[in-house]
């Protein structure tokens, strides 16, 4: 490193037209930091001796400035320095890449023990912050994922409960159907030969149109509840709803207003003995 510094200073000498062989044995190029001493003089210190500005040097040196100087070390108790260049911000900007590397290497070699712990602490803190942020992000992401999974599980459980309920209900109906014959309607025998189905499929083909294979009577009464949830279709000889026996279709005025029609659909209707007709949910 000492060699590099020497080369660095040699480069300065060349840069400012000072060759090594131009210098006497007592003249050296040195970097000096000038301060205002107790007597009011601007001076630097080299090898424990004060260094004053040579009279021949024209540059004005101020307190706190650092200069590259040519130092006359021929005297024993003090030296004189002739300024070459001031080391300020502009100087550092004008340094070549190699020169900057040399300075950095020098600083690093001299202060490695002091810089190392600082850098380690700084990197350790930065890495710890990064790790903490990564952990926090991961936890947040995993929490969101867990929340989504919990919602999915809850949905599945709800659907499972609904399906179990539907299956149980259908099993009960099946058992009832297997155990007892379907009840017969109270009237409409002329147009309803044979046993009555307990459940029929009603096809809603239009807003007001219903058709079903179970519509075997010629006339029907149709009633709906005021809460517009159920519709009763009851065969009766005096019914005001005429059923076309060929296509087994009935038309109910206003059905599309109480139950919105969004396309053809099939609806199950059950025979309700207490009403003597088929009950469907609308």
């Amino acid at each position: 490193m000492a060699r590099q510094i020497k080369d660095f200073l040699g480069d300065f000498g060349k840069h400012f037209g000072i060759e090594e062989h131009d210098l006497s044995p007592f003249t050296k190029v040195r970097i000096l930091h000038f301060r205002l001493d107790a007597k009011g003089n601007i001076s630097a210190s080299l090898n424990g001796r004060p260094v004053f500005k040579d009279r021949s040097s024209e540059d004005d040196i101020k307190d706190g400035e650092t200069w590259v100087c040519k130092v006359d070390m021929s005297r024993d108790s003090y030296y004189f320095a002739s300024t070459i260049v001031k080391l300020d911000a502009q100087f550092y900007f004008e340094l070549s890449r190699d020169q900057m590397d040399a300075i950095a290497d020098n600083v690093w070699e001299r202060h490695r023990d002091m810089i190392n712990p600082l850098m380690e602490d700084r990197y350790r803190a930065a890495i710890a912050a990064k790790i903490e942020k990564a952990v926090r992000d991961a936890e947040l992401e995993s929490d969101e994922r867990i929340e989504e999974l919990e919602k999915t599980v809850a949905d599945f459980e709800r659907k499972d409960a609904e399906n179990r309920h539907i299956i149980a209900s259908l099993q009960q109906k099946l058992e009832r159907c297997e155990g007892s014959p379907p009840p017969a309607p109270p009237s409409g025998g002329l147009f309803m030969p044979g046993p009555v189905q307990s459940t029929i499929v009603i096809h809603r083909s239009g807003p007001d149109e219903l058709s079903s294979e179970g519509f075997t009577s010629h006339r029907y009464f149709a009633h709906f509840s005021a809460d517009q949830k159920i519709l009763l279709i009851r065969p009766h000889d005096e019914g005001n709803i005429i059923c076309d026996v060929e296509d087994r279709t009935i038309r109910l005025g206003g059905l599309g207003k109480i139950s919105y029609f969004d396309g053809p659909e099939n609806v199950f209707a059950e025979y309700a003995p207490q009403y003597g007709g088929f009950l469907m949910r609308i």
Partner: peptide, 22 residues
């Protein structure tokens, strides 16, 4: 609760003549 019972009678949409004559 009357609103849960199927009590409101419906008519055929093209049956005004039938309804009026009834």
């Amino acid at each position: 609760k009357l609103e849960t019972m199927p009590l409101l009678q419906m008519y055929s949409p093209d049956d005004e003549v039938f309804a009026a004559a009834a």
